[in-house]
Design a protein around this nucleic acid. Structure first.
Lengths: 132, 132
DNA sequence: GTATTTGCAAATGATTTGCAGTGCT
DNA sequence: AGCACTGCAAATCATTTGCAAATAC
């Protein structure tokens, strides 16, 4: 119900496929195209990869979702929410959010550069407590 | 001369193709596969993309170079050097280094997470002074 | 009713692989 | 000499496109 309105807010039609995509992103936090495809097929046996790609692109273009590029693996996608950083376990591959605002973190350092800073993305890699 | 030893230090054979790859990375700072291919063809007219891909991978695997994933464009490659952050102009596409150590920056925040942090990569996007 | 979206199949683009020949040490 | 590397062609994998039918609003 909420997701239907989220889509409408961005002037996108609330198709069941799109609602399912958003639901899966909410549920998983971050999801790759391939996993999205596998999962979503359970409900929509006939959905096509082309539809996923098209929807991912339109949702990115309105900033409803965001692409997270990950060292050594394919990108994942997440719903846009409050700014945060990512931490990746190089052993198990799990990607998690870390809550702090990347922009304020680099603010001072970048101030002198004379750039207009719009976005700061931070990817931390290491080994998670479980894999240590 | 220096690059030949750099390769040998990582137990890789110092082929002219590899030396040229390193030279171009040093010269450009960050370079994409396609630009690398275009540039390197001027000297090695018969070099193949496959060779570039293979070499990029072997050099990454020994940490001689590093892949920089960039929002909205194909990855670029750079020689491993002192830790630094990247700043990207979304208008002209130029990618530059910013010199500060990302690890110390997030150190405090991550301390409580119980991860072993190996690497922190920071990508800042915005508009550069020229494009403003 | 109209414009958008879907799903298919085909086209394109990017990367990887196998292998015979070559070159580094 | 021996093993690693190169370059080619083919194979694989990822993403995009065109289009007719279906669907949201």
């Amino acid at each position: 119900m909420k997701n239907r309105h989220l889509l409408q807010h961005y002037k996108l039609k609330a198709t069941p496929q799109r609602i399912a995509i958003i639901k899966l992103m909410e549920y998983s936090g971050h999801i790759s195209i391939d996993d999205l495809f596998k999962e979503i097929r359970e409900k929509f046996t006939s959905i096509s990869l082309a539809t996923l790609y098209k929807n991912i692109h339109t949702m990115i273009s309105v900033s409803l979702i965001r692409e997270v590029k990950i060292p050594g693996q394919k990108a994942k996608y997440e719903i846009e929410k409050v700014p945060h950083a990512h931490i990746l376990c190089k052993t198990c591959g799990e990607l998690k959010d870390i809550s702090f605002d990347p922009i304020t973190l680099v603010e001072d350092t970048v101030k002198s550069s004379d750039y207009r800073v719009d976005e700061v993305s931070i990817m931390i890699s290491g080994i998670c407590p479980n894999c240590k």
